[in-house]
């Protein structure tokens, strides 16, 4: 068999982009996935913005921002990423792609990137809505940036870990529910909780750091001494790093590329 060659030069980044753009195309092509991962979270996020109007109160706005972050992270990214991973594994697409020139890391990045990009787009929509409705701006943007980055790390590693215990794409609708509700619920409570007494212990729950960081971004005081004289932001920072490390370690040990094993 004689291969008619073409001068194709495929770079590692080019390969990741090729698969990632295909994944985006597939999300947009699948109406059910498109609605559940784009329209529903955006609709809910915008609805909550108007429902829980902050009336110019930064503390109330922190709750609104937390809800928006939790919706984009948990409903937008976490669920879509888990579903995509499990669907590709069950259909042996991950196994097939491992026989191409993609590295394992590149394969995961390409498979997860579209969910992350769509989630970030949702956050961009929320930001525009917040600005357009004259909501209060953060007094300290750094915790908000950390909330976004830490939240991304949390839901991406959680998706990898959840895929381990999810046998079919359909089952992901159940296996993702507990963490989704925890992120939504705990995040909102944390955005309201003071940084005193036993409240920082709330950071033991995944997603709480997002709410806490949103509150610190809106009301300030990140570096004010709180429990045990430590900076108020510290528990949230530890949780922001800790949960992704835990989920990432679980995923690293147990992640399956092939439904057979």
């Amino acid at each position: 068999m004689t291969a008619t060659t073409t001068a194709a030069t495929v770079t590692p980044v080019g390969r990741v982009l090729a698969l990632a753009t295909t994944e985006v195309l597939l999300i947009l092509r699948n109406k059910t996935v498109a609605v559940s991962s784009i329209l529903l979270p955006v609709g809910l996020g915008v609805f909550w913005t108007f429902q829980f109007s902050s009336y110019g109160d930064p503390a109330r706005q922190a709750v609104s921002i937390t809800l928006q972050l939790a919706v984009a992270l948990a409903m937008g990214i976490y669920i879509t990423a888990t579903q995509t991973l499990v669907a590709r594994r069950q259909a042996r697409v991950l196994k097939r792609m491992r026989t191409s020139g993609l590295s394992d890391r590149g394969l995961l990045v390409a498979t997860l990137a579209p969910s992350v990009v769509l989630g970030l787009l949702q956050l961009a929509v929320f930001a525009v809505v917040n600005v357009a409705t004259g909501a209060p701006m953060p007094v300290d943007p750094l915790p908000l940036v950390l909330a976004v980055l830490g939240g991304l790390a949390l839901v991406v590693t959680a998706a990898l870990a959840t895929s381990v215990i999810t046998p079919t794409p359909e089952r992901s609708q159940i296996t993702t529910l507990p963490l989704m509700f925890v992120i939504l619920g705990v995040g909102v409570v944390a955005s309201l909780a003071p940084a005193e007494g036993w409240w920082p212990a709330l950071m033991l729950a995944p997603g709480a750091a997002v709410g806490d960081l949103a509150q610190l971004a809106m009301t300030g005081g990140s570096w004010t001494a709180a429990t045990a004289g430590l900076p108020a932001i510290l528990p949230a920072l530890v949780a922001t790093v800790g949960w992704p490390v835990l989920f990432g370690t679980l995923a690293l040990r147990r992640f399956r590329w092939d439904p057979r094993h």
Binding site: A3, T4, T5, V10, S100, G101, L102
Partner: peptide, 15 residues
């Protein structure tokens, strides 16, 4: 077409 962009061995979908 996707495979062409993923694999290091040159070839053509048409073939």
């Amino acid at each position: 077409a996707l495979w062409q962009r993923l694999v290091d061995r040159p070839d053509r979908p048409e073939r």
